[in-house]
Amino acid sequence: MSIIHQASQKKVRLIFFISVVVLVSAFIISVATGYISLSPSQLGRTIFGFGTSQENLILFSFRLPRILVTILAGMGLALSGAILQSVTRNPLSDPGILGINAGAGLMVVIYVMYFSSEATSFIYVLPFFALVGGILTTIVIYLLSFKRGEGVEPTRLVLVGVGLASAINGLIFTLTARLEEEQNAFIANWIAGRIWGDDWIFVLALLPWLLILSPIIFSKAHILNILNLNENVSVGLGVKVERERRLLLLIAVSLAAVSVSVSGGIAFIGLMAPHIARNLVGPRHQSFLPIAAVLGSILLLVSDTIGRSLLDPSGIPAGIIVTIIGAPYFLYLMAKR
């Protein structure tokens, strides 16, 4: 372990407060920007219920739900990445790189192929589909990197995950080659990470997962602290390593799969947010997890806003912007180590 520098409680609270302020500002800017921009005064009166019908439509039917989906998905991906990094004891872990997103994506493709014509109520089912895909992929990765007597060796886990990710992506391309043009375009956009869940239904489909899983993660923060240490230390401290690892892995996979099911395949948020948070307040999970969650939201929201304003009217998918920022950061982290 590197030298543990631990910020004081006061500093942690201050940084958390600042990041929330940044998120709120990003939120306001994002609401105002788009194909039809809203001025601050328009925005103010629309929020308090005095907007024109057009302003109301833009804000409440299109922009607000999309932004909320973005914030929730960013949070989910950041928390998922943070857990994965601790559980695999590999600071370069990320649900996108490990193939969990790809597995979820495969199930999204299958959903689109067979159920997309059904009523919109099926939207609530989509996260479960993604979840099944994510969990199945993780089980495959886990089994392939598991060895009796040694448990799961982090290096092998990452290698297997990377390979499986490229494999599943190939499979997705093959499946989509035969689809109708419209469905094909949807999948292509999904893979590129276009936030497509821009309706209140998607907010409702995503919110319960975060509300249920986040408290569990925070209650396990001390276990994450220990798992992040050497395996022998963890065992010595009385943690049932394999069991806790599996449970936390399940939570991480669920968060990632559910998030990407509505946000599209977005990598690197789960990598960047925890790293920046750890740099700010140190490696104690109780301190950095909440900050990582807020940072994840900021990153995804800013990326989506940039993407929306770059190319009218459809925009560049958020996933592309995130990757263009995130991949160099990943390479920087690699070079530094």
Partner: peptide, 30 residues
Amino acid sequence: SPLRVILAGSAVMYLLTALADGVALVFHLT
């Protein structure tokens, strides 16, 4: 080491693919 090269390869692949996708979208080459 194999791990580092594979990881770097994976990140570079993501980056260049994202850039290619971006170019393709802007210029309608998808």
